[in-house]
Write a protein that binds this DNA or RNA. Structure first.
Length: 102
DNA sequence: TCCATGACATCAA
DNA sequence: ATTGATGCCATGG
């Protein structure tokens, strides 16, 4: 029973997350806007935190607006590196290049 | 219903 | 770059 966060919302977010091309990343705000809830960036994060439980989603391709990685996602950096995402340093992605353009 | 929390965003200093 | 404050919306107790 995973659908606690408005099943509909989850579907919209995950649908977009799945669309993120390899080697690219997306910000929560950008994602929120794509699903029609530009103010619900937090919801996106909350949903993504559960996304792994719903199935296999590239939640590691989702970072905050600063290109900062998730707080409890140690493998994220390695995963993104594997996909060819350019890092500015150990904690930030080069959004300038890696941000996904929908 | 009210209050607290949150993998956020944006601005000011 | 870092910290603090404010906004925004949904969830859970």
């Amino acid at each position: 029973m995973a659908e606690k966060l408005t099943e509909n919302l989850i579907y919209e977010i995950l649908a977009v997350v799945e669309e993120i091309p390899r080697g690219k990343v997306c910000s929560y705000g950008q994602l929120a806007k794509l699903i029609g809830r530009d103010k619900n960036a937090r919801l996106v994060g909350k949903v993504l935190s559960h996304a792994e439980q719903f199935g296999d989603f590239p939640c590691h391709r989702v970072v905050n607006h600063a290109g900062r990685l998730a707080p409890a996602f140690l493998n994220q950096k390695a995963l993104l590196l594997e996909e060819g995402v350019p890092f500015k340093n150990d904690t930030h992605v080069d959004m300038k290049i890696a941000q996904w353009q929908a």
